[in-house]
Design a protein around this nucleic acid. Structure first.
Lengths: 175, 175
DNA sequence: CCGGGCATGTAATCTGTTACATGATTGA
DNA sequence: TCAATCATGTAACAGATTACATGCCCGG
């Protein structure tokens, strides 16, 4: 699923502006990916041209004008199609793994430091995910909750995995 | 760690051609990422200009000429620096998660099918990783083996995680 | 008075893939 | 004879990020 389909997904619940879409995205997928305005606004423009969404300018006073996007029936159809498409598994590019691969070039202390640093970064992310819980539980349906729990378990697993590497590094009889 | 550093990593063991570098990469990181000639050759050219590597043309008969790249001391230094750099944790972009998030738009059967399809793709990848074992054990040092085991556990964990989602979908009292 | 939230957008840049172009050798 | 392996490279495209540009309102 590309950006477009994801935006359509959010729009199929309610009409939103580009600004609001970014927020939804941040809340729902914060721990997996982000989305910048630089990709949202052009995508919306394109989708308007393709008649997957319609746009309505709302003039506000005391606040900047907003462009509210509404999904069309063609948009709904495209979204459902995208959901059903067979998907290709994308390999995550794991920067830790690349480093670990070349750990022989570091001293035992540097190895320990690098691995621990990584572990702490993961734990910090995990804390953030947990802090997000109330926000997510507020508006999520059954599947969106599954999504959240999937994310939690995912980080739990990687943390365990990295911990195991650290343990192995400790046991390793230095060089 | 970017491509350049990774290439330097391989070159710090022995001099290699672009063609060989791709192979190394494929064996070592096949299950995490690939690298195409379209990025390797330009990267090598750039690194030559930056004097991180030197190049030597080897004329062969009966086979195409090859350009063997050798790391320089500046290259070694740059590589070690890159290894030590503090790293930012990159979120994996999980396409399954994005779909799961919008599963309410599919029928119970379609949900089951999508989830199982994903599970099977993961299991297939896992099989491939396991099949790679002898090739990796042949030339890997302690850390590179750790890397391999990390990969195995990683897939094992995701498979368990997705299985749990499937179980939850089954228990879910349809709509 | 300053930072943050609201709100939209563009341009430059980066990083990488895919497809194309070339061409000899070897083994089934 | 057909596919695979060896071997290098470019050009077009894709997908996204970052930084920039603009500007008002509100709360501390």
């Amino acid at each position: 699923m590309d950006i477009k389909s994801t935006l359509l997904g959010f729009l199929s619940r309610q009409s939103l502006t580009g600004y609001e879409l970014k927020k939804r995205f941040a809340i729902s997928f914060s721990f997996f990916s982000g989305l910048s305005y630089g990709s949202i606004y052009p995508a919306l423009k394109k989708m308007e041209k393709e008649e997957l969404v319609t746009q309505k300018l709302e003039i506000q006073d005391g606040a900047p004008n907003r462009k509210v996007y509404t999904i069309t029936s063609a948009g709904r159809k495209a979204f459902i199609e995208a959901l059903k498409e067979p998907f290709h598994w994308e390999m995550p590019k794991n920067t830790f793994l690349t480093r670990l691969f070349f750990f022989a070039h570091l001293s035992p202390e540097e190895r320990q430091a690098a691995a621990r640093e990584h572990l702490e970064a993961l734990q910090e992310t995990q804390r953030q995910i947990k802090a997000f819980r109330p926000k997510i539980e507020a508006g999520a349906d059954f599947y969106q909750l599954q999504c959240y729990h999937f994310g939690l378990r995912f980080y739990q697993d990687i943390i365990r995995n990295v911990s195991e590497v650290i343990r192995a590094l400790e046991k390793q009889p230095d060089e």
